[in-house]
Measured scan of single mutants.
Amino acid sequence: NQASVVANQLIPISTALTLVMMRSEVVTPVGIPAEDIPRLVSMTVNRAVPLGTTLMPDMVKGYA
């Protein structure tokens, strides 16, 4: 089972991601792979991401 990136807090729309905002967790459905966390830092989300939500590729500008 692959770990995915999960929001560690509410991430408001257009917020630049930082390490403290994300954690890795094995979830269903599978989202962005946890090993991509370093790549996600400073990318922005294009929607509000509630606490505990799995980050999907279409939620992060420039990721997909």
Results as ranks from 00 to 15, higher is better:
I11K: 01
T54F: 03
V27Q: 05
T44V: 12
V5M: 02
Y63N: 04
T15C: 06
I11W: 02
V60M: 05
E35G: 08
S24M: 08
Q9I: 11
N8Q: 09
R23H: 05
V20A: 13
P33D: 05
V5C: 06
D36H: 12
L10N: 15
A34E: 08
G52A: 06
M21Q: 04
V45Y: 00
D36T: 06
P50R: 08
T18Y: 03
D58N: 13
Q9Y: 09
N8S: 14
V41R: 05
V60S: 01
N46K: 11
S14N: 15
V27T: 11
Q2Y: 09
S42C: 15
P29S: 04
L40I: 10
T54Y: 03
A7K: 00
P38G: 11
G31M: 02
T28R: 04
T44D: 04
L17D: 03
V27K: 13
T53D: 14
N8L: 05
M59G: 02
Y63A: 04
A7T: 12
V27A: 06
T28L: 08
D36Y: 10
P50K: 14
Q9L: 09
V5Q: 02
R47F: 08
D58F: 08
S42V: 03
S14A: 13
V49R: 00
D58E: 12
L51S: 15
V6G: 00
G52M: 05
I13D: 14
P38V: 13
I11C: 03
A64R: 12
Y63T: 03
P29Q: 05
A48Q: 14
P12H: 08
L19D: 06
L51C: 11
V5Y: 02
R23Y: 05
V45F: 00
A64L: 12
V49P: 03
T54I: 09
P12M: 07
Y63C: 04
M22L: 11
V6E: 01
V49A: 05
L10Y: 15
N46F: 06
P33K: 09
P29K: 06
M56T: 10
V49G: 01
I32M: 02
T53W: 13
L55K: 01
V41K: 04
S24G: 09
I13E: 15
Q2L: 14
S14C: 13
